[in-house]
Design a protein around this nucleic acid. Structure first.
Length: 412
DNA sequence: CCTCCACCGGAAAGCCGGGTCA
DNA sequence: TGACCCGGCTTTCCGGTGGAGG
């Protein structure tokens, strides 16, 4: 009898090194980002002499190489600093989850923890005290601290202003150490929302990452394939298709790399010798479906119910869905499920969140005499039973969806 | 040309469950 | 134990808003 793991780690695996496809993998060379890297280097070079390097913000769409470039440059900076005996410490914080003043400071201070330090609790302290402790630990380490604040546009609005104020004035509070901020943002208008002094201190230098073209994504993928896939398991046509599909998604290299990885897995499962067009196409479809299913399953109850209302409307042939019709269906669904409905104001923001999550397309429309509303349509990939996924394992939601079937029958 | 529709979305505040600390 | 703090989610309040139709 063969061991199940032995069977899984077959010798004819497509991959020679799977780590190459890990999102945290940092390649040895960075393609098509010379100008941006150069700008960052000029800005950070001061750090090596112990001066304060300027703050900067990297702008660009997802998968445009911002984070990769920041990591690449910082890694080189740290290596160089070590070689010449100067001290550079980097802190990477992703504001998607570490999204408040307290959490960002907590994260920086915690990484500077040394034996004998108190452990800062993840909540409970006044934020000012966390700031004090962070400053103390930075000073103790001394040297230059480069703080990379990734996805900074995702900071919670209430703490955003205060945190950025703290970070940009760190050098006033520090005595022996120096700090520099590298902000990374998907949103080009991010700095508009900031007050003048913070904006000018933070955005001393703006570095823009334009989306990769299909050709550039192609180059990146060829690098990855060379490093991570076995020879003879891939050819130009498969890579080209991955690149073209990604270019449609605004030159998202991260997604393209992921698509290549899933395509290789598909080929592996199908016992093929190499990746072909079919593998890429089915990988693309699978990724879209998986993404939507994961998102839907993770939604809170009321979000599920609202999304379900959109889907029910669509199934019932309501061609133009606006906020009013969705709210009507939603309140009916609530009474069937036995929930107290949220206010229409709240529902409105939730619908907008569906748009940014890619679950629905939402557009504001002005209908003159007939007022102002949103037009909404679902972007959930065909081939998945979304209503079933949304209602499963929740009696209330199941009741709501069953009631909707009855309604449909009556209409039919 | 002016009205007024039917909702938009920012701001602020409340509630609540998580926590610390003396 | 009670005063105090943090942060997510929600409600309340309210000043907009483009253009069809009178």
């Amino acid at each position: 009898m063969t061991n199940i793991f032995e069977a899984a780690s077959r010798s004819n695996s497509m991959f020679s090194d799977r780590r190459v496809f890990d999102p945290r993998h940092s390649p040895s060379t960075l393609r098509h980002r010379d100008a941006q890297v150069h700008a960052m280097v000029l800005n950070l070079a001061d750090a090596l002499e112990g001066h304060i390097p300027g703050n900067m913000i990297l702008y660009g769409t997802t998968g445009a190489g911002k984070t990769a470039a920041a990591r690449f440059v910082i890694q080189q900076l740290e290596e160089r600093a070590e070689a010449i005996g100067s001290s550079v410490t980097s802190h990477e914080v992703n504001a998607q989850h570490t999204n408040t003043r307290y959490r960002v400071l907590h994260s920086i201070a915690t990484r500077l923890w040394e034996k004998g330090d108190v452990t800062i609790p993840f909540t409970g302290w006044p934020a000012d005290r966390v700031l004090e402790e962070t400053v103390r630990r930075m000073d103790r380490r001394s040297g230059v601290h480069v703080i990379v604040l990734d996805e900074m546009d995702r900071l919670a609005t209430q703490s955003e202003e205060q945190l950025l104020y703290d970070l940009t004035t760190l050098n006033v509070l520090l005595s022996t150490a120096r700090a520099s901020i590298i902000g990374i943002s998907n949103d080009f208008s991010f700095t508009d929302s900031l007050t003048g002094p913070i904006r000018s201190r933070l955005a001393a230098e703006d570095i823009v990452f334009t989306p990769y073209t299909a050709d550039q994504v192609n180059d990146i993928l060829i690098d990855r394939a060379t490093d991570g896939l076995r020879e003879g398991t891939w050819d130009e046509s498969g890579i080209r298709l991955c690149a073209d599909l990604a270019a449609k998604e605004h030159g998202d290299a991260r997604r393209a790399i992921d698509l290549l990885r899933v395509s290789a897995q598909r080929a592996e499962i199908g016992d093929a010798n190499s990746i072909n067009i079919e593998h890429v196409i089915s990988a693309q479809a699978q990724m879209e479906q998986d993404r939507a299913i994961t998102l839907m399953q993770g939604l809170p109850e009321h979000q599920k119910l609202i999304l379900m209302s959109i889907l029910i409307n669509q199934r019932n042939g309501v061609h133009t869905q606006n906020s009013g019709t969705i709210w009507e269906t939603y309140t009916q669904a609530c009474s069937r499920a036995g929930f107290r409905p949220l206010t229409s104001r709240r529902v409105s923001t939730i619908i907008n969140e569906f748009d940014s999550a890619g679950l629905a397309h939402v557009r504001n429309v002005f209908l003159g005499r007939h007022g102002r509303t949103k037009h909404v349509y679902s972007l959930i990939p065909k081939g998945i039973d979304a209503i079933q996924i949304l209602s499963q394992d929740n009696p209330g939601l199941e009741a709501a969806s069953k009631g909707a079937y009855k309604l449909q029958k009556r209409l039919g």
